[in-house]
Amino acid sequence: MISRSLLAMLLPVALAACGGGTTENETGEMAGMEGTEKGEAGERADKDAVTLTARQIADAGIEVAAPTVGGASGTIEAPGIIQGDPQGVQVVSATLGGRIVSLTRNLGQSVARGDALAVIESREAASLKAELEAAGARAALAQSNLRREQRLFAERVSPEQDLIAARTAATEAGIALRLARQQLGATGGGGGAPNRIAMRSPIAGKVIARPAVLGQAVDANAELFRVANLAKVTVTASLSPADAGRVRPGTRVEVTAAGRRQEGRVTFVSPILDETTRLVQVIVGLDNAGSTWRVGEPVTAAVILPSTGGGGISVPSTAIQSVENRTVVFVRTPTGFRAVPVATGRPNGDRIVVTSGLTGKERIATTNSFTLKAELGKGGEMDMD
Results as ranks from 00 to 15, higher is better:
335 T>M: 10
229 N>K: 04
169 A>W: 09
321 Q>E: 15
212 A>M: 06
143 Q>A: 15
263 E>L: 11
58 A>Q: 15
76 I>N: 00
277 T>K: 05
10 L>H: 13
107 L>N: 07
223 E>I: 09
267 T>V: 12
208 I>T: 15
11 L>C: 05
20 G>F: 04
80 G>P: 01
55 R>T: 14
189 G>N: 09
207 V>R: 02
89 V>N: 08
247 V>I: 14
348 N>E: 14
316 P>M: 07
45 A>S: 13
85 D>L: 03
63 E>R: 14
249 P>T: 11
73 S>T: 15
167 R>Y: 04
7 L>P: 00
336 G>D: 04
153 F>C: 04
295 V>S: 07
268 F>L: 13
49 A>F: 06
354 V>C: 05
250 G>K: 12
13 V>E: 13
91 V>C: 02
11 L>Y: 07
191 G>E: 01
157 V>Y: 10
278 R>A: 03
372 L>S: 02
342 V>C: 06
187 T>G: 15
261 R>H: 06
314 S>V: 07
234 T>Y: 08
354 V>I: 15
101 V>M: 06
1 M>P: 10
242 A>C: 03
31 A>Q: 12
246 R>H: 06
40 E>P: 02
206 K>Q: 10
110 S>N: 12
151 R>V: 08
124 E>M: 06
184 L>C: 04
295 V>Y: 03
97 G>R: 01
50 V>F: 08
18 C>M: 14
340 V>Y: 04
281 Q>M: 05
356 S>N: 14
278 R>N: 02
376 L>F: 09
340 V>E: 08
185 G>V: 11
347 P>D: 06
33 M>Y: 14
285 G>K: 05
